[in-house]
């Protein structure tokens, strides 16, 4: 549906053409425009420079920019494709694309594997798994004795480490996810299907006219 009175609006330096971004992701051009509304909000919450800083990401997730969280940090690092410490609009859209309900499942599986491969060795190692369990317990203020944590990690490793080499590779992760599809639940954001409804103001400022 086209817009009657399109108006050019100022774009940040990291802004990328919605047509290009739509061609590389599951989003339509209109959805990319709607995501820009969200991006503007997130990227101006602390420093108004058109880039999402780690503190702004934390603020959006937790309503607290000082809160340290291992998993939020990992997500930020994976979104930061250029590894320059900030997330620009193109990175934001491309990374969120993995979370779209229509994104290929193998992209979600790969992203989750990278997320849990804390030290980026190509494997999820036992120490990393324990570190993540301990971080989760700390975050949730749950207290479990160390031997219980060890038992949880051991049991998971016995199940996942099919080759028995003490580490989980991508292939073993794929098998584990087949067995426990719920492990990918966080990798799909239903919101992304309704993004144009959540951020409708783009309709008034859109430069894009969709041809349907």
């Amino acid at each position: 549906m086209g817009c009657c009175h399109s108006k050019k609006v100022g774009r940040t330096p990291g802004y990328e053409d919605p047509i290009t971004l739509a061609s590389e992701t599951p989003f339509t051009e209109s959805e990319v425009e709607a995501l820009y509304e969200l991006f503007k909000k997130l990227s101006s919450s602390i420093i108004n420079d058109g880039l999402i800083h780690r503190e702004e990401f934390q603020l959006a997730l937790f309503r607290n920019c000082k809160k340290q969280n291992l998993f939020a940090d990992r997500i930020f690092d994976l979104f930061d494709l250029k590894r320059n410490g900030v997330i620009d609009f193109g990175e934001f859209v491309r990374s969120l694309g993995v979370f779209h309900p229509n994104a290929p499942v193998h992209h979600k599986i790969e992203f989750a594997f990278k997320l849990y491969d804390l030290r980026q060795t190509g494997f999820i190692e036992r120490e990393e798994l324990k570190e993540m369990v301990v971080a989760l317990l700390h975050e949730s203020e749950l207290v479990l004795a160390d031997d219980v944590v060890e038992a949880i990690v051991d049991k998971t490793f016995t199940e996942a480490d099919l080759k028995g080499d003490g580490k989980i590779d991508q292939e073993e992760w794929d098998e584990l996810v087949k067995k426990y599809p719920a492990l990918l639940k966080n990798m799909t954001l239903p919101y992304l299907k309704d993004i144009t409804l959540a951020f409708p103001s783009f309709i008034l400022t859109s430069e894009v006219e969709d041809i349907e």
Partner: peptide, 26 residues
């Protein structure tokens, strides 16, 4: 489900830091 009975990854996946839905809350 008791945390002790969960698969470690199931437990981890409950982290608020992995819930990107929060980004869309106004």
């Amino acid at each position: 489900q008791s945390p002790a009975a969960m698969n470690a990854f199931e437990l981890i996946s409950t982290s608020q830091g992995l819930n990107l839905g929060s980004l869309f809350e106004k």
